[in-house]
């Protein structure tokens, strides 16, 4: 035990860690939460739930016209039919990109986001610059993300709320005729489903 001396220093928790532990202990003791259930939620969001869930939805819509109609008609219902439990319990609306219109999603007030299909929001989605600029200057925001659209393409901004969240259905890249859903899903990035990006070009997915 050569390190014995170090033990006398004890441990330290930051003020933030203390606050989180206090909340968790009090709420557990009062029966509001169960630490094991918290671990399951965290595990799910770290591993199972992420943009790949949304990518499957988009790929299926590209592949299956009936599913696409169902998705655009009632996003929550269509996604539920794929077996994704909605934990957030809100209304998911899928908005379709076309040559005439590009959709982009923001939450101007906080960071409402379709967690169930995209996982947790990226840092920039939660930032004040994105929240304000996406509404005022969507074309400039897209340029920052390296997306240039024809001037004739209208850009529509969707402001998420706690009740209604949006998923962008990007345009299927050309040159992907005959591709399987699994292969198509690899083209779908998180940013493409927020509207700040486009699907990967087919040559990037062998």
């Amino acid at each position: 035990m050569a390190q014995h001396d170090h033990d006398e220093h004890g441990s330290e928790l930051s003020e933030t860690q203390l606050r989180v532990r206090a909340l968790e202990t009090v709420l557990t003791e009062k029966g509001y939460i169960d630490p094991a259930a918290l671990d399951l939620i965290i595990q799910a969001y770290e591993t199972k739930i992420g943009p790949h869930t949304g990518a499957r939805v988009v790929a299926k819509a590209w592949h299956d016209p009936a599913f696409k109609r169902a998705l655009l008609d009632d996003g929550s219902k269509a996604v539920r039919a794929l077996g994704h439990e909605s934990r957030v319990g809100d209304h998911l609306v899928a908005v379709e990109n076309t040559p005439a219109r590009h959709n982009i999603v923001v939450c101007t007030l906080c960071s409402c986001y379709p967690w169930d299909v995209l996982g947790l929001p990226p840092v920039w989605y939660k930032s004040a610059p994105y929240r304000s600029r996406a509404v005022k200057d969507p074309r400039g925001v897209l340029a920052d993300f390296g997306v240039k659209l024809p001037a004739s393409t209208e850009i529509r901004v969707w402001d998420s709320t706690a009740e209604t969240r949006f998923l962008v259905l990007p345009m299927r890249p050309s040159g992907t005729e005959g591709w399987s859903e699994e292969r198509l899903a690899q083209l779908v990035t998180r940013d493409a489903m927020i509207g700040t990006g486009l699907p990967k070009p087919p040559e990037e997915v062998a």
Binding site: V20, L23, E24, L27, Y32, I33, D34, A37, L38, D39, I41, I42, Y45, R87, L120
Partner: peptide, 8 residues
């Protein structure tokens, strides 16, 4: 932890 508590 904070995220999961709100969900729970």
């Amino acid at each position: 932890q904070a995220f999961a508590m709100a969900l729970a």
